[in-house]
């Protein structure tokens, strides 16, 4: 992951990847990624996330050595677009080892996230 992408993902994840304007956070959810430490292979394939994510309430629900995935949904008023921000990280005690940051701008994960909401209800 490039330094700029990592920096942006860490400090300005609410900046639109297209127009760089500030986006509005509409939803967020923490997931457990079904991969153990050092077995994570970077991929931005949405099917991979759809098949391997498990909804959790808090970070302490994720066992040691298992990756986590924070998903935030943004609305960019400039582009009139829903943007899904996916951050893959390894929770290690009180720290996080950042692995990847992806933006999905074409609704690749929308169905999956809707299903997760339904599951909650």
């Amino acid at each position: 992951m490039s330094f700029l992408k990592k920096f942006k993902g860490l400090f300005h994840d609410d900046w639109c990847p297209t127009c760089n304007s500030e986006m509005e956070l509409t939803d967020k959810q923490l997931f457990m990624l079904n991969e153990t430490v050092s077995h994570y292979v970077s991929t931005r394939n949405p099917a991979y996330f759809q098949n391997n994510l498990l909804k959790v309430d808090k970070k302490s629900d994720i066992p040691a050595g298992v990756y986590a995935c924070g998903i935030k949904t943004y609305w960019c008023s400039e582009c009139s677009k829903k943007i899904v921000y996916v951050q893959v990280f390894l929770p290690v005690r009180d720290q996080e080892k950042m692995e990847d940051v992806f933006y999905y701008e074409n609704g690749e994960l929308n169905n999956f996230l809707e299903k997760q909401k339904n599951y909650k209800l």
Binding site: V37, S38, A64, G65, V66, L90, V92, R93, Q95, K97
Partner: peptide, 18 residues
């Protein structure tokens, strides 16, 4: 202690201890 190598090592060790 916050380097990726150390965090990986701690994570593996925590997992095995659990």
């Amino acid at each position: 202690m916050d380097s990726n190598y150390i965090l990986d090592g701690i994570s593996k060790a925590d997992m095995m201890v659990n």
